[in-house]
């Protein structure tokens, strides 16, 4: 029985000065790199499943450059049984289908029952890599899982999918299956620096030439550049000109209310105040 976990490293921008608005480039020295917490949560879940079903083998996969090698070392230190590195340069500019295709190829040729990955990567938040891999391999997928209950003997299990407000939909699915997990599914175990610096064995996978992602016949989107956030006014909302540019930006970025920081004070008799607050909640659709 095999569980494959795909992991990546993410870059967190220390603050917005990490972006140069003149040349429109992300300044590499402002990025802090580390394992994607969603993908380490996926690995933690796999390791817990192995603790329950000892004949499970947990394999870690990552696509990328030195970052991928680093995250695989981390995965081994966490407790993966083996790790496979698919070297690729500049994956931030690589189309998702292309990325998915390379990962799918590597996973597929090693046999699989359950594939786990994170719901998203916090830097790019695309959320699609897992589902694309599932489709290429030809297995069903469930996204945003907060709980997995597998019965490997019967080759099936239950998966809780996160909905709004903490509600869950529960699905039953047979293996093979791909699940993308929420960060909260497990807290990844602590890995000491000493453990991370042990000489873990990482297997490098050279690209097989037989399959090409061009066989997929997808036209990718092309990244054409970056810029500082530039808001577009929200329909039907009056943007208060009294707001500073920064506040207006925050308001649009948060997708939030048009009232931010401009509304007057609500005060008066408790009953009247309560009515005003509940009207506000109702307007915003909170109940």
């Amino acid at each position: 029985m095999k569980i494959s976990v795909i992991l990546d490293e993410i870059a967190v921008m220390a603050d917005s000065s990490g972006f140069d608005p003149i040349s429109n480039v992300v300044k590499q020295e402002w990025l802090i790199h580390g394992p994607n917490p969603y993908s380490t949560a996926a690995l933690e879940e796999a390791i817990r499943l192995r603790e329950k079903y000892p004949d499970i083998q947990v394999s870690a996969y990552s696509l990328g450059g030195a970052d991928a090698a680093r995250v695989l070392t981390y995965a081994m230190a966490m407790g993966a049984d083996d790790a496979f590195w698919i070297p690729a340069e500049n994956i931030k500019f690589m189309d998702l289908w292309d990325r998915a295709f390379r990962l799918a190829n590597a996973i597929q040729s090693r046999g699989n029952d359950l594939i786990l990955c994170g719901r998203l990567s916090a830097d790019e938040n695309t959320e699609e890599l897992g589902p694309f891999i599932a489709d290429i391999i030809g297995v069903p997928f469930i996204s945003d899982a907060t709980k997995i209950d597998m019965v490997f003997a019967e080759q099936k299990g239950l998966v809780w999918r996160r909905l709004e407000r903490g509600d869950r939909d529960v699905y039953e699915a047979k293996l093979p299956l791909l699940i993308t997990v929420e960060r909260g599914i497990r807290s990844p175990r602590y890995v000491s620096v000493r453990k991370q610096s042990l000489p873990w064995r990482i297997t490098k996978i050279e690209e097989s030439s037989s399959n090409k992602s061009s066989d997929l016949n997808v036209s990718p989107v092309t990244l054409i550049g970056s810029a500082l956030p530039r808001p577009k006014p929200k329909k039907g909302a009056q943007i208060a000109t009294a707001l500073s540019a920064q506040d207006r930006l925050m308001m649009l970025m948060s997708g939030g209310s048009s009232q931010k920081k401009e509304g007057g004070l609500v005060e008066g008799k408790p009953g009247e105040v309560a009515r005003r607050i509940s009207e506000f909640f109702e307007e915003k659709g909170f109940y």
């Binding site: 916090a122 054409i224 956030p229």
Partner: peptide
């Protein structure tokens, strides 16, 4: 078609061109 979306925890906007 060009689409702009936030990346890096909303600190940067990135533009994509669709096929």
């Amino acid at each position: 078609i060009e689409v702009t979306k936030p990346t890096y925890e909303k600190k940067v906007f990135t533009r994509f061109e669709c096929p």
